[in-house]
């Protein structure tokens, strides 16, 4: 089975029912997307498929249908961070950091749909991404800062 992740094509021999998250982490050793709950309740595994946020624990590899996958590893690079990653650093959002890969991917997807989100827009889009450290106020601030960066770019 073929799939493209962060611009690189891969061939994996797995059952079509295997969740994309398992393929990424166990078959391709792409470990940015995290396993949290396995049932779309926490958002830690969020990646993009064709640019749109998806819970990779809920997407069977056989259902990918040629969609191109982007993980946190492909969103930006150390020398050229995505605006959301940059805002994350500037606002020191992460505490334990376990959820931040999913948070950042969800936030980047939100800003693609809605370049100038209100606090309510951010809360509506980000409520499916849980943070056990409770960094929600900093997440919201970072998303707003990223939106301003992207609009000024």
């Amino acid at each position: 089975m073929r799939l493209t992740v962060n611009g690189t094509e891969h061939e994996v021999e797995v059952e079509p029912e295997m969740p994309l998250l398992w393929v990424l982490r166990d078959e391709l050793n792409i470990t940015g997307p995290k396993y949290g709950c396995g049932i779309a309740q926490c958002g830690a595994c969020t990646v993009h498929v064709d640019g749109v946020a998806v819970r990779s624990c809920q997407l069977a590899i056989g259902d990918l249908a040629g969609g191109e996958v982007t993980t946190i590893e492909g969103l930006g690079q150390p020398e050229s961070l995505h605006a959301v990653q940059q805002a994350w650093v500037e606002h020191q959002v992460a505490q334990c950091g376990y959820c931040q890969s999913g948070q950042i991917m969800q936030a980047a997807s939100l800003l693609d749909f809605n370049p100038a989100p209100t606090d309510a827009d951010i809360d509506a889009a980000m409520s499916g991404n849980l943070c056990r450290c409770g960094t929600y106020p900093r997440i919201r601030a970072a998303v707003k800062a990223a939106a301003q960066k992207l609009q000024g770019a």
Binding site: P16, A60, G62, F113
Partner: peptide, 21 residues
């Protein structure tokens, strides 16, 4: 959910019709 978060973020769309989804 396009204005907020797409339903399909979690309720992914099946391509292969596997029965134990």
């Amino acid at each position: 959910g396009a204005e907020h978060i797409l339903c399909s973020t979690c309720h992914t769309t099946k391509d292969e019709d596997w029965s134990n989804a």
